[in-house]
Computed example of a mutant assay.
Amino acid sequence: MSYPPPENEPGPPQAYWPAGMPAYPGSAMPYLDPRFDPADPLASADFAGWWRRGFAVVRRGWRTLALVQVLTAVAGLVLLVPAQLFVDLSSRDLSEPDGLPVPLLAANGLLMLATCLELLIYLIGTLVAVRVTVSIATGADMRVGQAVRAVLPRVPALIGWSLLTGLITFAAVLACILPVFYVGAVFVVLPVVVLFERGNAVSRCFSLFHNDLGAAVARIATIAGLGLAISLPFIVGSVALSLLLDGTAFTGTGGVIAASVTGSVLDGMGSLICGVVLTPLIVATYADLRARREPFSTAWLNA
């Protein structure tokens, strides 16, 4: 399958390519690595360039990226917090012999439904963040509402591919710990692939990952390390609140509500910061890996 634009579609704008020079490898190409245009805002030939380009997008567009993440987090919390609170109160009531417990099974069913809806919102937010990242990188003017309308047609595809990759990941869990890390690394760029390409997204992720294994591992391992460093304080805080919830200090209704809401908010804050910082790095990883495999320009993504 050919992933670059067809011949009848316009190529990269002249701004990305020096005048009088071919857009792709040729005898007159002066670049150290002819697969990469130094002016491209996302694709880079080395790790340092990838890092600079990713954080350049963060610096220029963190407000817009944060808005996307806030809207996603708030919508998720509106669904998840009441359901989680219902479960926490039901669990507490079941431990009280004189209480009138709400059926815990119904509470967990509500939580499962809320979690599924939250995951749907998360998938939409992920696609919007990817689309906004490309717009920020290329200097295009795209509002969040425009990005939402642009990505909605790809949401069913992302749901389908996410379910399939979830099954693959589950099979990796059954196999061993090492395959889980491998499969998880391969599918880091899945949302970007689904949004900007058509075809078998799973095989495409594997082909991009294995085409230049060293570059892929270096970038994705860095993303994973940053994600862990950002999330760890919020995870510790959430776990501490859960332990307090089991203690006598938080057995009252007010304490249960405060601990439940605060724990959900902490999880949302960690996800928000990760979304702002890591999304540009993930999109830049996709651009790097694709440029290593085939002729590519970030300008094509806006088309």
Rank of each mutant, 00 (worst) to 15 (best):
P101V: 03
L281M: 14
L301Q: 06
I282A: 08
A15G: 10
S297C: 08
I159L: 15
P41E: 05
A291F: 00
F250Y: 15
R149Q: 13
L71N: 04
L228I: 15
V283G: 02
G99C: 05
R63I: 13
S135W: 09
G247D: 00
A216W: 00
F206H: 01
Y122S: 11
T169I: 15
L213V: 06
R154Q: 07
A39K: 09
S207D: 04
R143F: 13
L208V: 02
L195G: 07
L80V: 03
A299Q: 03
T248F: 14
P38D: 04
F55P: 15
S2D: 09
L167Y: 12
V192S: 13
S242A: 10
V265I: 15
L174Q: 12
G125A: 10
L301S: 06
L79K: 04
L289N: 01
E96I: 15
I235K: 06
V180I: 11
I124N: 02
P82V: 10
F187Y: 09
P153W: 14
P179F: 02
G247Y: 00
L119W: 11
P12I: 10
N8V: 13
T251S: 15
W300V: 00
N211A: 13
R35Q: 08
R59S: 14
G254E: 03
V188Q: 09
P12M: 03
P97E: 04
P25G: 11
V180P: 07
P4Y: 01
A107W: 00
V183R: 06
L213N: 12
L119T: 13
A106K: 08
W50A: 03
P97R: 01
D267K: 14
I136Y: 00
T169V: 11
L164K: 06
L241I: 09
V130M: 06
A150S: 09
R198A: 11
A28Y: 03
L100I: 14
T72M: 14
V186W: 03
V144F: 02
V283S: 07
L85R: 08
S90W: 02
L79T: 12
V217Y: 09
I223R: 04
V192C: 08
A229D: 06
R131K: 06
L77N: 10
F196W: 14
S231E: 11
P4V: 00
I177G: 02
P156V: 08
V134R: 01
L104G: 11
G263L: 11
A66N: 11
P34L: 00
T285R: 02
L245W: 02
V261T: 07
L65T: 01
N211E: 14
G268R: 05
